[in-house]
Design a protein around this nucleic acid. Sequence first.
DNA 1: CCAAGAAGTGAATCGGGATTCACAAAAAAA
DNA 2: TTTTTTTGTGAATCCCGATTCACTTCTTGG
Lengths: 203, 203
Amino acid sequence: MSYKRSFLMEERLADNRQRILKAARALVAEGGFNHASIAAVAASAGMSAGAIYRYFPSKSALFVEVLTSAIDHEIAILQAIVQGEGDVTARLRACVESFANRALEGPYLAYAFIAEPAEQEVDEARLLGRIRFGEVFKSLLIEGIEKREFPAQSIDIGAACIVGAFTEALVRPIAPRAKRDGRAELVEGIVAFCLRAVGAKIF
Amino acid sequence: MSYKRSFLMEERLADNRQRILKAARALVAEGGFNHASIAAVAASAGMSAGAIYRYFPSKSALFVEVLTSAIDHEIAILQAIVQGEGDVTARLRACVESFANRALEGPYLAYAFIAEPAEQEVDEARLLGRIRFGEVFKSLLIEGIEKREFPAQSIDIGAACIVGAFTEALVRPIAPRAKRDGRAELVEGIVAFCLRAVGAKIF
DNA sequence: CCAAGAAGTGAATCGGGATTCACAAAAAAA
DNA sequence: TTTTTTTGTGAATCCCGATTCACTTCTTGG
């Protein structure tokens, strides 16, 4: 019998895989999904188009992973905030602020991840991501209501609405070409909207 | 010289155009944009694929028109509510309710119009539509603040957030396959969220 | 009815990017 | 080193639906 991947080989492969993901992410960040053909990704990752298929079964699969891991990262950040200290209102505010700020930082990337159309599969992943974001807010809502910071209300709907609200408010300034001033005001406006919406008392 | 379109001919042409639009709309309603290839539209409209191109310069153009006219219709309805009687809060509620109910009526159509990815051009039309919906809510917000029904707040952001909120809350139950019970609760939840968000006093 | 122009047909073409594949290079086993 | 297996290459192929176009059919004006 024959061939067992050496450790070094193993590493190189893993490395290539990462390089592909990174290249794909970068291309999306730079010009949206359109910009990111397999050929472009391959070139940018320093390998041939065919090679990509040793690492990912299809373009969709690749981009689903790109999207999913970006979302994972985002969720982790939010989760950390949720589990942090402070009253629920403050944490909700921090979540929205944090998300919005990062989105405004990398416009194209955020646009692609929030809104840009892509393959069926990628879209499903995005919907899933939205649902996961919703879960985060759901947990905040539950806690907020429990602690009487917020009035009783429909949790699921509220969570979805929050995600939709800041997402929509972000997409317009984010969408390619849009002006990008008044960032602070934008973020503050979104936060204020969300806090009022859940009935936080500060307002 | 020769040939001048008779009135009857003129009519038949206009009729065909309408038939195409209707067929396209129906196909979208039935299975989303995917379902609606030129071939399918042609077949469903009872003519050949080539003929479509006598009426529309491209597939995109056709679907942009389908989308736009649907949005026009929707906007007209909302506008009527806005200009109707009652306090601003009531009208805002009516707008959201009305939109949501119609969206839940024709799930696929609404999904396609709200969220399903499509060609660049169609997407731009959709973004435009969202902005127009935003305008409607903007006018309500302005009036509401003027009349002291709502506290001072950022108009543009608020409008965008409202659109995003109900849109998101609708898309999930709307997205192909989702269950569809508790419609009334859903609508009521969305309305409540939006009213709180703008600071309406009822709550 | 005929000629000229317009509308309709649908099979062939086109486009453009994903995917494959015959082959080459590199790595492990012998 | 030779053999075997894996990995990498990139041009050719495939896919698939929009779009075109040579041709037919219908309308209009004479």
